[in-house]
Design a protein around this nucleic acid. Structure first.
Length: 917
RNA sequence: GGGCGAUUAGCUCAGUUGGUUCAGAGCACCUCGUUUACACCGAGGGGGUCGGGAGUUCGAAUCUCUCAUCGCCCA
């Protein structure tokens, strides 16, 4: 790569990524070093890289790279999740497009198609992560449904069953009629939708009287078992104990009184359909009502309905309304907005349905999960997510986990049925042996056993992820080295689905797998810290997603700004845990979100800035000859100062890393590198131009000592920036010097922070402020930036102290184009304007024509007024006994110094006013 | 209905657990500059009564209460 033109990330990023891979830098094998472990939240195997992944994985990569630089054995385990429902839905759709119906093929055939699909598309997202620069150990890539991980899942199922924590039961569940499976509560998305509230009258048995109920679901009338009213509702008291006739079906059902009924809602009378509503089911249980399931599993009407057999529920809704109207029983139709639950995966309206499912009892495990987060064994960043977490895992809110799914894509439940017996065993052979034993029938064969058709919830495999990726359930040797992992980086939306459950699994199994000694020493938790990332949202605060089309294309962003630029952009968008409003603009015409971002652009510009600074340093002429005193003094100060600044920056970074304030860290680095290193340090050491014999400008040479120092410093900078922007730093690292094999930025040594000289930093800050003031005058008065000016500083103790810093005066002179910088006792230097930095007064000589005495006077008066106000406030504060007595001494001392400084400045302002006015 | 969070400059966000002249950053905007690493640049500048109100405190952007608006999670 030649040092010409602008920085172009594309080629450089490809080059270094393959270089790192070839050198096995991401690979981790247990050794004597301390391990630093992260397991990736496995993205869906069918997924594509989206903004959430980019944020999430950038953060993981930063932490892993930092640990690697610190000499730890950094291990980042990548992988994918089989995502049962999502993937099965996609495969079903793909098959349908080919004219194949799932119901027409066998389980085995379906799985063959599904695995083909997985093999074709499953690796895409991982390749995309590589483009982002993710330094995961790809040789460890795992998949939740691969053989070893599946074995672990089955083992755990059998174990929990044996422990009595897994049971089978008939429950009201969320049913997805399209995928024909049960959904967990977490997989149902509730949104407000427009619908109608139908008022339907039911005739009282043996009476001409009617009672009118309100329902949004008239098609379930066929399954009505009662009409319920609130016991306190006087409108209906006279009906208690009577019976009504359900329209159309003409079934006679009781009128019951139940407190659940809201008197204010609708007519105050509720039809009760225990088979099709959670609450109705509860009422049914209380009143021993009949449960009539009027739907088939695909949402069509069942035999039990008696009418409309085989027709779809929504079609039936229309038909039934028509029939109710015809029979005169439809009283009114009211427009209404209600919450409708839809399947997260198929978007089908979810039915409540009574089904036989497998559950895990969560009582004991959720208590542990609650305790260990609240006693600090597992720490959350930011902390406030603990509140949300507690609310979910606390006893009264936790519910048993429905772990069975009526799908084929997933781990099949290892339960076998023989007659009325249920045998749970890891393999068919073991199940058979057990079955023979249980039944006492030794002639049973494998064909007598019927395995449960269902598979397990995806989360039932991913909750084991931190242990199963190290094959901990088979051979705990590696697990012992890497477990517990250091940090989990994930979105807060899966705090319950995944984070809480991993914690439960960790406490359930780590001791059994690793031994008491190990867990006593290292902890049972799967990860010590959890870093919650925010959701990436669009301008309207909607979650960015493919389905909404409101997300920029991740890969296009990388193409446009480079991975470093995108990493910069993602990270500078917001702090840990807070949602990020990504700044991608919309196409004004199509309203489509463009793959552009100012923040990512800033990242690319930063790369370019670093690139140009590199070009500049490398292009300088170097000399070993001694240079003028002035130059040497300035250079010396520059070197001394940047080192202190560097140490101060390291200290700050250390603090930020400890609390995962990575956005802050990046800003700290950005400011240090751009402002301190490039704008101050490089400008200070930049050799001046002089006219040679022919009158041409020629740049002086830079002392070799200074050059070496600049290169050293730049090298240190690439190391500390590397975790955030790995590619550009690796490239610059190699451009700074010739490198031996293995001498790479990615494995350079991350420095330990040392003490720094805050006094020197502060004095140079003052000098920078002086330079800035002089430039402001130039800008205001239209004076060329290179026209030499004279500057004076009033002779005070403070001035002496300031100028004690070797090179400070010369540095100011160089950066502000000052030809003469003099300490003076005189109060009256003609043609000067006065300004104050700290508590020191400076006088800047300007061309006479540019000085506006009246304006200067006005300025000074305004300043004095401001200072007077400040003095008043400070006096009041310091005059307040309670402040002086209660505030910490250093705060009081500070206020006192503030007062003294203010008064000193007031004195200067008065002096200026006296002279001008 | 229960819970969590947000509200700070035109925009996107910080503000490290109440105390440095603390009201900040980046972008955008305005003025000037093509000077020689970089116009993907440099120099300078304008802009916010920290959502409203009340309270606690010597001291509040920060803590409490309340109201408003918005977002989310769970029922």
């Amino acid at each position: 790569m030649s040092l010409e033109g602008n920085y172009s990330p594309d080629e450089i990023e490809k080059k270094w990524y393959s270089y790192w891979m070839e050198n096995d830098y991401f690979k981790s094998v247990p050794d004597e070093r301390e391990a630093y472990t992260i397991v990736i939240p496995p993205p869906n195997v069918t997924g594509v890289l989206h903004m959430g992944h980019m944020l999430n994985n950038t953060i993981q990569d930063i932490l892993i790279r930092k640990a690697r630089l610190e000499g730890k054995n950094a291990c980042w385990v990548p992988g994918t999740d089989h995502a049962s429902i999502a993937t099965e839905a996609k495969v079903v759709k793909m098959l349908r497009a080919q004219g194949i119906k799932k119901s027409d093929i066998s389980r085995e055939e379906f799985l063959k198609y599904a695995f083909e699909w997985k093999d074709k598309y499953g690796g895409i997202i991982l390749e995309q992560l590589q483009k982002l620069g993710a330094s995961a150990d790809w040789s460890r890539t795992r998949f939740t449904m691969e053989e070893k991980l599946s074995k672990a899942v089955i083992k755990v199922f059998c174990d929990l069953h044996k422990k009595g924590k897994i049971y089978r039961g008939l429950r009201m569940t969320n049913w997805d009629p399209e995928a024909q499976t049960v959904l967990s509560n977490e997989e149902v998305i509730y949104t407000e939708e427009n619908s109608q509230l139908y008022h339907v009258r039911y005739q009282i048995q043996d009476s001409e009287e009617y009672v009118t109920i309100a329902t949004t679901r008239p098609e379930t009338i066929l399954g009505d078992s009662a009409v319920a009213v609130n016991p306190k509702d006087e409108r209906y008291t006279h009906l208690h104990g009577k019976k009504v006739i359900v329209p159309l079906v003409n079934r006679t059902v009781p009128i019951i009184a139940d407190r659940y009924v809201e008197m204010e809602f609708g007519t105050g009378a509720l039809k009760v359909t225990p088979a099709h509503d959670m609450n109705d089911y509860d009422i049914g249980q209380r009143h021993n009502l009949e449960t009539i399931d009027v739907f088939n599993s695909d949402g069509t009407m069942s035999e039990a309905a008696g009418f409309y057999l085989g027709k779809d529920r929504f079609e039936v809704r229309k038909l039934i309304v028509k029939d109710l109207k015809a029979s005169g029983n439809l009283v009114e139709i009211e427009n209404y907005r209600n919450k409708v639950g839809r399947s997260e995966r198929t978007n089908a309206v979810v039915e409540s349905r009574l089904t036989l499912q497998w559950f895990m009892d969560m009582k004991e495990n959720s208590k542990t999960a609650f305790d260990v987060v609240n006693n600090g064994e597992v720490k959350f960043f930011p902390e406030h997510f603990q509140n949300m977490y507690n609310n979910w895992v606390k006893e009264e809110n936790v519910r048993d986990w429905c772990i069975s799914r009526q799908l084929w894509w997933g781990q099949r439940i290892p339960a076998y049925y023989v007659g009325d017996e249920i045998i749970v065993a890891p393999t068919p052979e073991e199940a058979l042996a057990k079955a023979r034993e249980v039944t006492g029938n030794s002639s049973l064969t494998a064909s007598d056993l019927r395995q449960d058709e269902d598979v397990l919830d995806t989360w039932f495999s991913s909750w084991l992820w931190p242990m199963s990726v190290f094959d901990g359930f088979e051979n705990p040797e590696e697990l012992a080295y890497y477990y517990p992992t250091n940090v989990l980086v994930t979105g807060w939306d899966i705090i319950f689905l995944w984070v809480a459950r991993m914690i439960m699994a960790g406490y359930e199994y780590s001791e059994a797998l690793l031994g008491t000694e190990h867990v006593n020493k290292n902890g049972k938790f799967p990860f010590a810290d959890v870093y919650f990332t925010g959701m990436v949202r669009d301008k309207k605060r909607r979650k960015m997603s493919k389905s909404l089309g409101n997300s920029p294309e991740a890969l296009e962003l990388i193409e446009r700004y480079g991975a470093d630029g995108v990493r910069f952009g993602m990270l500078s968008s917001g702090a840990a845990g807070n949602d990020i409003i990504f700044d991608a603009p919309e196409d004004p015409e199509t309203k489509k979100t463009l793959s552009e971002s100012d923040k990512c652009d800033q990242g690319l510009k930063f790369c370019n800035k670093m690139w140009n600074a590199l070009k500049f340093l490398r292009g300088l002429e170097i000399t070993t000859e001694k240079q003028s005193d002035e130059i040497e003094k300035v250079n010396h100060l520059a070197m001394q100062w940047i080192e202190e600044k560097y140490e101060a920056t390291l200290t700050q970074l250390e603090r930020q890393y400890e609390t995962y304030r990575l956005s802050d860290s990046l800003m700290t680095l950005y400011n240090f590198i751009w402002n301190d290193f490039f704008s101050e340090y490089v400008e200070l050491i930049k050799p001046a131009y002089i006219k040679d014999a022919d009158g041409n400008n020629q740049q002086l040479a830079l002392s070799k000592t200074v050059y070496d120092h600049a290169i050293d410093m730049y090298e240190k900078i690439t190391t500390i920036l590397h975790p955030f922007m790995p590619f550009v730093t690796e490239e610059i690292w190699h451009q700074l010097r010739d490198r031996k094999p293995g001498e790479d930025c990615i494995v350079s040594a991350y420095p330990k922070a040392k003490n720094f000289d805050a006094g020197l930093i502060q004095k140079v800050d003052s000098a920078i402020a002086v330079i800035s003031k002089v430039r402001a005058y130039r800008s205001e008065k239209g004076i060329k930036s290179h026209l030499p000016l004279k500057l004076f500083i009033k002779n005070t103790k403070g001035a002496q102290e300031l100028l004690e810093v070797q090179g400070l005066k010369e540095a100011i002179a160089k950066r502000a184009a000052i030809e003469e910088f003099t300490v003076t006792d005189s109060d009256d230097i003609p043609n000067t304007v006065s300004f104050v930095v700290g508590t020191e007064q400076f006088l800047l000589e300007l061309p006479v024509t540019t000085i506006d005495t009246a304006a200067e006077l006005e300025k000074a008066k305004k300043e004095l007024a401001r200072l007077e106000g400040m003095e008043k406030g400070l006096n009041k504060k310091l005059g307040n006994e309670r402040f002086v007595n209660n505030a910490p001494p250093q705060v009081v001392a500070l206020e006192q110094k503030k007062l003294a400084d203010t008064q000193a400045k007031m004195e200067i302002a008065r002096e200026v006013i006296r002279k001008l006015g």
